[in-house]
C-alpha cells in the first residue's frame, strides 16, 4: 500500500495520538469544554506539529546523527520545539495578527505539549524521511483535533444533563474520554495498519 496513505490513516485513526497513544492528555482534557476553543487548540497543534516535525527531522539528521548524539534527541527536541514555537509566535504576531489572535493563548501553551514531542520522537523511531515526517506531523495534529473536538462535543451535551453528583464534572469527562478511546480502538488493524 502507498506508504503516505498508511501514515495519514495511521496518524488520524489507528494510532491517534490522544485516544490510542495517550499523549497530549492535558490539553485534551483542559481545553475541551467548548467546541470552538477545542477547534482553536486543534489548529494550533496541527500548526506546531507540522513545523516541529520538519525542524526536528533536520536537526536530527544533520546535527545529532552526525555527532553520534542520537541519545540526546529528547532534550534537543524539547529545546528545538520550544524555541521554534516562540519564534513562530513572534513572526505571526508581526505578519498575521488575525492568525495570531485566532491561535491566541494556545500557541505558547503547546510549547511543552508531549504530543508534539511525541510526534518528533516517533518520526525518528520509525525512520521517516522528511516528507513522511511532515505528513505524520500534520495528520497527527489532525487526529488530535478530531479527538478534542469530539470530546468537546460530548462534554457540551453532558454538562447540562442530570449527571449523578459523584460523577459530575471531571469524572464524567474521563469516562467519556475512555469510551471515545475504546471506540477508536476499533480502528486498529484498519487497512492492515498496526
Amino acid at each position: 500500500m502507498n506508504p503516505y496513505f498508511v501514515i495519514i490513516i495511521g496518524a488520524i485513526f489507528v494510532n491517534n495520538f490522544v485516544l490510542n497513544q495517550f499523549l497530549g492528555i492535558c490539553p485534551f482534557l483542559g481545553v475541551s469544554k467548548k467546541t470552538n476553543t477545542a477547534l482553536g487548540m486543534g489548529f494550533a497543534v496541527i500548526f506546531v506539529m507540522s513545523i516541529a516535525s520538519v525542524f526536528t527531522y533536520l536537526v536530527n539528521e544533520f546535527v545529532l546523527v552526525k555527532f553520534g548524539l542520537e541519545y540526546m534527541k529528547t532534550i534537543a527536541f524539547i529545546l528545538i520545539i520550544a524555541a521554534l514555537v516562540q519564534s513562530v509566535e513572534i513572526v505571526i504576531k508581526k505578519f498575521s495578527p488575525s492568525l495570531y489572535s485566532a491561535l491566541g493563548v494556545y500557541l505558547p501553551l503547546i510549547t511543552t505539549n508531549c504530543a508534539v514531542l511525541g510526534v518528533a520522537l516517533l518520526n525518528v523511531e520509525k525512520a521517516y524521511n522528511l516528507v513522511q515526517s511532515f505528513l505524520n506531523g500534520v495528520f497527527a495534529g489532525v487526529g488530535f483535533t478530531l479527538a478534542i473536538v469530539l470530546l468537546a462535543g460530548v462534554r457540551e451535551r453532558i454538562v447540562p444533563k442530570n449527571v449523578p453528583e459523584s460523577f459530575r464534572g471531571f469524572p464524567i469527562t474521563l469516562i467519556a474520554a475512555a469510551i471515545l478511546s475504546m471506540a477508536f480502538s476499533a480502528f486498529s488493524g484498519m487497512f492492515g495498519i498496526v
Binding site: V59, V63, L64, F67, L69, M72, I75, A76, L79, I80, A83, L84, S87
Partner: peptide, 9 residues
C-alpha cells in the same frame, strides 16, 4: 553541541 543549538536559537 546542545549549547551551540541553544545559542543559535
Amino acid at each position: 553541541v546542545l549549547i551551540v543549538i541553544a545559542a543559535v536559537f
